[in-house]
Design a protein around this nucleic acid. Structure first.
Length: 425
RNA sequence: GGAGAGAUGGCAGAGUGGUUGAAUGCGGCGGUCUUGAAAACCGUUAAGGAUGUAAGUCCUUCCGGGGUUCGAAUCCCUGUCUCUCCGCCA
């Protein structure tokens, strides 16, 4: 959520920021409504002060044996008026709230201005030793490999649940589990995170806190009977760990890493890019979430990206780093790097991680603060998160890049102690 | 799922209609004492909003929503959550 004070004090800055993010310009609407709100507050506060004064006087009058009926009559009227103004005020505040909740975060000054993904900036490409974009043999895609080696069964997954629900079998399931464990362990041992295993059904407040709701409500699964949402990412429960809390400055930064399955409806995306693992309704992800002091959040973002990259170095997976342009940034993000891994069969880069700084946007929505030791006042902290990483697309790259001309898969060295086997054949 | 109890400040915990934004304890912060620390003692310590250059002034908030009343932490209705017992159960 944007800070209404920022809109009040820097309307043109906000206007330009929203334009950069391809978002609706809500500035004038907000300013007018806010004006209305404040004048109403002025009126009600005055009446309430009057009522409070009477409340002090009445007991005194009673004690003195004076007649209070005139005051009662007057205060009755005052009370009715207060009720009326309060009702109006609530409507206005709801209006402001609704607008703000539907308004995306502004991007950071270092983010390139652009309309679409075309204008994202590739900032880095990392290729393993001996890697080549050309192969001397015909590479199979992950679906063919999965079928041939009996490690992935998309047809049966469809039978069990529907399309987009992959079934891992045999060494495929083991490899997936190995990958998750390796990533978790690596972040714990090398990057100083605290492991969490969060609930994977969350309530509406939590979904609002991180910004999936109301804007992206249609893309979310929903268990109507209990009012719970299967999480689209562990970012939701993990960020909400500290919802409505005031943390001490000493505790920061707090860094959590956690594995969870992720559920996304994302309807209306069939055909292109939707086969196999490329777009699924359920996938596994190791997620990193940080709660940090505002002045450190951009340094922490760079570290977060590095943490994700380290995993790919260890796995020896070719990847590139993209700095998203303003128009391609997600709703809540102020700055975001995507990490894309190479798929030789698709002959393209696949997004496997997204590392974002949300600044105070989520913290304001979820009311996550820390007490500034100098001023002694609570302030909104900054939240960040990044996939470290999502397994499904990463699995595409691992399978395809590690296949032999005979169609076998060589398990990456670092995963072997987790899988217990070196080759899938 | 059934029955009962409860939800108050950073935490614990009083308060059952009128200077109660809220006793008390703990914790935090500042000070006295001390070479320093601890202990002891003294003081201080909620959040949000409106207004104002500021000092300040005012308003709101005792789980959420609604009601009764001149006035609600306190009474009534309702929702949510927590705990205890029973049932079911990986």
């Amino acid at each position: 959520m944007l800070d209404i004070k920022l809109i009040r004090e820097n309307p043109e800055l906000v206007r330009q920021g929203l334009l950069n993010k391809n978002a609706k310009d809500i500035v004038d609407d907000i300013l007018a409504t806010d004006e209305e709100r404040r004048s109403l507050i002025l009126k009600t506060d005055e009446l309430k002060a009057k009522r409070n004064q009477a409340s002090v006087q009445i007991p005194q009058m009673k004690k003195a044996g004076q007649d209070t009926s005139a005051v009662f009559a007057e205060m009755k009227l005052v009370g009715d008026q207060i009720a009326q103004f309060d009702f109006q005020l609530r409507e206005i505040e709801e209006k402001i709230e609704t607008i703000l909740r539907h308004t995306p975060n502004l991007s950071h000054a270092s983010v390139p201005v652009g309309k679409t993904a075309e204008e994202n900036v590739e900032t880095k490409q990392w290729l393993p030793d001996g890697f080549s974009f050309q192969n001397d043999f015909k590479v199979l895609d992950h679906i063919e490999l999965g079928k041939k080696l009996k490690i992935l069964d998309f047809e049966r997954g469809t039978k069990i649940s529907g399309s987009g629900f992959p079934l891992y079998i045999g060494k495929g399931a083991t490899l997936e589990r190995a990958l998750i464990n390796f990533m978790l362990d690596y972040h714990l041992q090398h990057h100083g995170y605290t492991e969490v295993m969060p609930p994977i059904l969350v309530n509406r407040e939590s979904m609002k806190g991180t910004g999936q709701i109301p804007k992206m409500e249609e893309d979310m699964y929903f268990v109507e009977k209990d009012g719970l949402y299967p999480i689209p990412t562990a970012e939701v429960p993990i960020t909400n760990i500290h919802r409505d809390e005031i943390l001490s400055e000493k505790e920061l930064p707090i860094k959590y890493v956690g594995y969870s399955p992720c559920f996304r409806r994302e309807a209306g995306s069939y055909g292109k890019d939707s086969k196999g693992f490329l777009r699924v309704h359920q996938f596994n992800k190791v997620e990193m979430v940080k709660f940090v002091k505002p002045e450190t959040s951009y340094d922490e973002l760079e570290l977060l990206v590095k943490d994700a990259e380290d995993i790919l170095h260890e796995l020896n997976v070719p990847y590139r780093l993209l700095l998203l342009c303003t128009g391609d940034l997600s709703f809540s993000a102020a700055k975001c790097y995507d990490i894309e891994t190479w798929s030789p069969a698709e002959n393209k880069w696949l997004e496997a991680s997204s590392c974002s700084n949300f600044e105070a946007f989520q913290a304001r929505r979820a009311n996550i603060r820390f007490r500034n030791e100098t001023t002694k006042k609570p302030e909104f902290l900054h939240t960040l998160n990044g996939s470290g990483l999502a397994t499904s697309r990463l699995m595409v790259s691992i399978l395809e890049n590690n296949q032999t001309p005979e169609g076998k898969i060589v398990v990456p060295k670092v995963l072997q102690k987790y899988t217990g086997f070196e080759i899938i054949d």
